[in-house]
Design a protein around this nucleic acid. Structure first.
Length: 279
DNA sequence: ATCATTTGACCTTT
DNA sequence: AAAGGTCAAATGAT
């Protein structure tokens, strides 16, 4: 188990290295290049009331035709108009400064995310999940990300392509401190947080649920998650510039380790390093 | 009661 | 027109 995790970690670190020292740090990964024809996600034209959930399929079957009419009649024209108008400016062109990486643990990048959508992408085996920073509402943090599981089923740790868009205006510590106490982990001791904050949509999302996601149970977390350094939360990353070799051989911390603000490692540090390496 | 997720519809971009 | 990104009601979890 641990050996396997270690191997996973090694592989991912190798990936990180590759990214770090590649000339084009923000290379877009061809995640959907895996080829496999997209499974028909839509079985004909679905006509359901908005907000329906999967559990209501039966219900919908019974009332399908009814709903179809209701869709048209139900909504006051003014409301519809208003909503249309409000959506006018909804979609912006995708952030020009998006950053992409591949990881087997998309959830642990130092920030909290809230899922706001999921979509089956043409040509992709798995659905893409859309997340925004949980601070988007309170602090107006514009950061978003999409997580898509890569097509190659053979990858032992499921790999995910994570695309970050927009910069965080919030701090990662804020994200955690409200819900969960900081947790300091040594290499041999694990004290898991009350991790409702870390149990993200990934646990349930078909797109990214897998054996790699964190559970809210502290014991489970300790068992399952102690090991793969993935986004290697490492003091050195923030404290000083060190060679990757040093980082790789250094002490390993749980991805959930929450250092103090000055030493907090987030995905931003990684991207900063990418930028530095690229310039 | 509140919060997070799901998911079809809607909208923009290509 | 197709594809992809976002909205928001319904619903589940806590």
């Amino acid at each position: 188990m641990l050996a396997g995790r270690q191997q996973q970690g090694d592989e991912l670190l190798a990936q990180l290295r590759q990214l770090l020292f590649s000339p084009s740090p923000t290379t877009v990964v061809e995640s959907s290049g895996g080829g496999g024809g997209a499974p028909p996600c839509c079985d004909g034209r679905r006509r359901r009331r908005r907000g329906s959930k999967r559990g209501r399929d039966d219900d919908d079957d019974k009332t399908c035709n009814h709903d179809q009419q209701q869709d048209v009649v139900d909504e006051p024209a003014a409301d519809a108009q208003l909503r249309r108008h409000s959506r006018k400016t909804r979609r912006r062109k995708q952030e020009k400064s998006s950053k992409c990486l591949v990881t087997s643990v998309p959830d642990f990048d130092g920030y909290q995310w809230r899922k706001y959508g999921q979509k089956q992408i043409e040509g992709a085996m798995y659905a893409r999940s859309y997340y925004r920073c949980t601070r988007s509402a309170q602090q107006g943090c514009p950061a978003k990300r999409t997580v898509q599981r890569n097509d190659d089923d053979d990858a032992v740790p499921a790999e995910y392509t994570v695309v970050y868009m927009g910069d965080h205006t919030c701090t990662p510590n804020d994200d955690y401190s409200l819900e969960a106490p900081p947790v300091i982990l040594e290499t041999t001791a694990v004290v898991a947080p009350v991790a409702s904050t870390t149990t993200s949509a990934a646990d349930q999302s078909p797109a990214i649920s897998d054996d790699i996601t964190c559970r809210s149970s502290s014991d489970d977390y300790a068992d399952d998650y102690y090991g793969p350094p993935l986004f290697g939360v490492h003091d050195s990353w923030a404290q000083e510039t060190t060679m990757m070799e040093d980082l790789i051989s250094g002490p390993i911390r749980s991805p959930l380790h929450i250092p103090d603000a000055a030493h907090a490692w987030t995905i931003d540090h990684y991207f900063l390093m990418l930028d530095a390496a690229g310039s």
